[in-house]
């Protein structure tokens, strides 16, 4: 399989200012920032499924928001199909020398063009659906917004294909139903269908199953996997549940405090984790078989506040094998095997 990168993320930083209280200002406390992303780089190939895993607050959602141009990076670049997302998302792509078509589009059309090609699915199927809209209205809405110049028949065909690809078949059976007339799994399918109707090339699925019941989870994950086959779509799957990621993703990026600490093929990362943080995460993921109980490597405390990122290796305050050196040196990536790397001084 030839690999064409659809997404290239280069040294991405995203900071949020911390709101200062009145007393802070009186005391002239220094301005502080949340380092949500602190130097993230990775690429995703066309048709690949990448898992972004890590504890709460590690920056997973922020990566997704920046990739879709819903936030503007503080530093660094995101290239989607070779174009700079930050420019594209704000309609500032310039026409290149050889007469680049996108660059010549109006601001609004540029923004819409990006939206059409990259979509996000959020965590909570109850919140992302308007309870007053029918399934049809929900799924057809993006087509209306984008004025694709489709005939009524073409629109119907698109909505039908999106719903049926998402397992809601026959589509006619579902389109006059309101969200509360659907089961939890069906609702999440409608959310995914709404994202697919524009036929995007990239889907960022942010914790799409964490609110769902076990059997429905399997359903939605199988669906995402089948979409890749049916539509050759690229997927970034965000989760803190390593087991679901292990089941259907190709590669896995483990995030800690705004950095990727380990990246490699999913099977390799899960079977031979090298970074102590990944090792801990893998060791505490519950295995559904009492014969396979393992020794848990429990990290004390919680992810530190990303306002004061620890010096040296950011993981050192919780790392079970940290030494003095770790407090001083920010570890570079070490290549473990082709495509598998981790940032730890002890590898």
């Amino acid at each position: 399989m030839k690999k064409i990168p659809i997404l290239q993320i280069e040294d991405l930083y995203k900071q949020f200012p911390v709101t200062r209280t009145f007393t802070d200002r009186i005391k002239r406390a220094p301005k502080q920032v949340v380092h949500a992303l602190d130097g993230v780089s990775f690429t995703v190939d066309q048709g690949e499924i990448l898992a972004l895993v890590g504890e709460s607050g590690s920056g997973k959602t922020t990566v997704g928001m920046n990739v879709l141009g819903l936030q503007v990076p503080t530093k660094g670049r995101i290239l989607f199909d070779g174009y700079d997302v930050a420019d594209w998302a704000t309609g500032r792509l310039r026409s290149r020398k050889n007469g680049d078509e996108l660059g010549r589009l109006s601001r609004r059309k540029q923004i819409l063009a990006l939206r059409r090609r990259a979509q996000m699915v959020f965590q909570d199927p109850y919140e992302s659906l308007n309870p007053r809209q029918t399934t049809w209205e929900i799924v057809v809405e993006p087509l209306e917004i984008h004025h694709l110049g489709l005939s009524a028949d073409e629109k119907e065909a698109r909505v039908r294909a999106a719903l049926e690809d998402c397992g809601l078949a026959p589509a006619d059976h579902f389109w006059s139903r309101y969200p509360d007339e659907l089961s939890g799994g069906q609702r999440q399918r409608v959310v995914v269908a709404g994202a697919l109707v524009l036929e995007p090339e990239l889907l960022v699925a942010d914790e799409p199953v964490s609110m769902l019941d076990v059997s429905i989870r399997a359903d939605i994950l199988t669906l995402l996997q089948s979409l890749r086959k049916a539509r050759d779509i690229t997927i970034i799957y965000t989760t803190h549940d390593l087991a679901t990621a292990g089941y259907f993703t190709d590669r896995m990026a483990v995030m800690y405090l705004g950095r990727i600490v380990e990246l490699g093929s999913t099977v390799e990362v899960l079977k031979e984790p090298h970074h102590p943080y990944t090792q801990a995460l893998v060791s505490v993921a519950p295995v559904p078989n009492p014969r396979k109980r393992r020794k848990r490597m429990i990290l004390q405390g919680e992810v530190p506040n990303p306002i004061d990122v620890p010096s040296g290796c950011r993981f050192h305050p919780r790392c079970p094998i940290a030494t003095e050196e770790c407090k001083m040196t920010d570890p570079p990536y070490v290549e473990i095997s082709t495509g598998h790397k981790a940032a730890c001084l002890k590898i």
Binding site: V214, S215, L221, T222, L242, A243, T244, G246, Y247, L270
Partner: peptide, 30 residues
Amino acid sequence: IFNNPQHPYTQRLLKAFPDIAEPGSELASI
């Protein structure tokens, strides 16, 4: 329950649950 389930529901439930010790294995929803 986990290694010799006899009820069809238990069997299906287990197949729907991902096992991190076996990455890449098949999942089957109910």
